[in-house]
């Protein structure tokens, strides 16, 4: 074995070790902790079994919370995509300079994390520094209440958080669309609305599906916006996991995480079965 082959072999070995530590060990720990019962004082494993899962499914509460979270995130994904596709089409039609400016604006706004986004919107929806105060000052509404915490506030902010990412992911696919496709449709007498629904959307089916999957994944694992902008009854499943981690009920939090992971994988598999066929242009 020469020196170069030794270097390559060593690189493979290190990469395998890295994958074991950061990709496989976390999932293995997740599973083993979820099926273990520990001494609350010492953290020592007392036994292995399904006790944590029995506790999770003792009644329907957490199953309902998972279903609510999946439904909420699916709704956020649909609303985000419904806004992102036409807006990205509008940006794609702009001249180079204006389009570049928009890309930088989108990237800059998506650089804000969940914590900062939640904080910024709390200010905007507060009576002292935001829209309710301005409308009250203008005499349009009365009262001195802030608009958060509330379900609409949480929903809007989750869409706000997802929108720039969805647009950045869609832009390359929209830019790659063949302009002659649209021109031919117009020549054949299609209206603009018909072109959008019958030509553009089917052509973008693959990228829209991939963007929807990423938007779904991004939101289902977050908890800060939900906790900061929503009422306790609006909170997403990840909030419960974070709270149990905070209170050191770790096996239970891990069992909840495991259930969320299984639910997400099931959703992705179902979505892939229903919507994940190859896009029209690749058939």
């Amino acid at each position: 074995m020469n020196k170069q082959q030794q270097t390559i072999a060593a690189s493979y070995l290190l990469l395998t070790l890295y994958c074991v530590i950061v990709s496989f060990a976390p999932l293995l720990f997740l599973f083993t902790t979820a099926v273990s019962t520990t001494d609350p004082l010492t953290g020592e494993v007392l036994s292995y079994g399904l006790a944590n899962f029995q506790e999770v499914f003792y009644d329907a509460y957490y199953a309902i919370q998972i279903a609510y979270t999946v439904g909420l995130v699916a709704a956020i994904t649909v609303v985000t995509l419904s806004m992102a596709v036409p807006l990205t089409l509008a940006i794609a039609k702009l001249k180079n300079g204006a389009r570049s400016a928009w890309v930088v604006m989108l990237l800059a706004s998506l650089a804000l994390s969940e914590v900062l986004t939640a904080f910024a919107w709390q200010l905007l929806l507060s009576h002292s520094s935001g829209i309710p105060g301005w409308l009250s000052y203008a005499g349009i509404i009365s009262g001195d209440k802030s608009w958060w915490p509330s379900f609409p506030a949480m929903f809007v902010v989750l869409v706000y958080f997802s929108l720039p990412i969805a647009m950045i992911l869609l832009l390359p696919a929209i830019r790659r669309l063949d302009p002659f496709l649209k021109e031919s449709a117009y020549t054949m007498g299609f209206s603009k609305i018909a072109v959008f629904f019958l030509i553009l959307l089917p052509s973008l089916r693959g990228p829209i599906f991939q963007t929807a999957m990423l938007t779904f994944l991004l939101n289902i694992g977050g908890f800060v916006i939900s906790q900061q902008l929503g009422k306790p009854s609006d909170w997403m499943f990840a909030v419960f996991i974070a709270d149990f981690m905070r209170t050191f009920n770790i096996p239970f939090a891990v069992a909840l995480s495991f259930c969320l992971l299984v639910a997400v994988l099931l959703c992705l598999a179902i979505a892939n079965l229903i919507f994940g066929r190859k896009p029209i242009e690749n058939r």
Partner: peptide, 16 residues
């Protein structure tokens, strides 16, 4: 790790 739901990876890496 990038493709797992954020909270799930955070919990699992905290165990590691």
């Amino acid at each position: 790790p990038f493709l797992l739901p954020g909270i799930v990876f955070a919990v699992s890496i905290s165990l590691v």
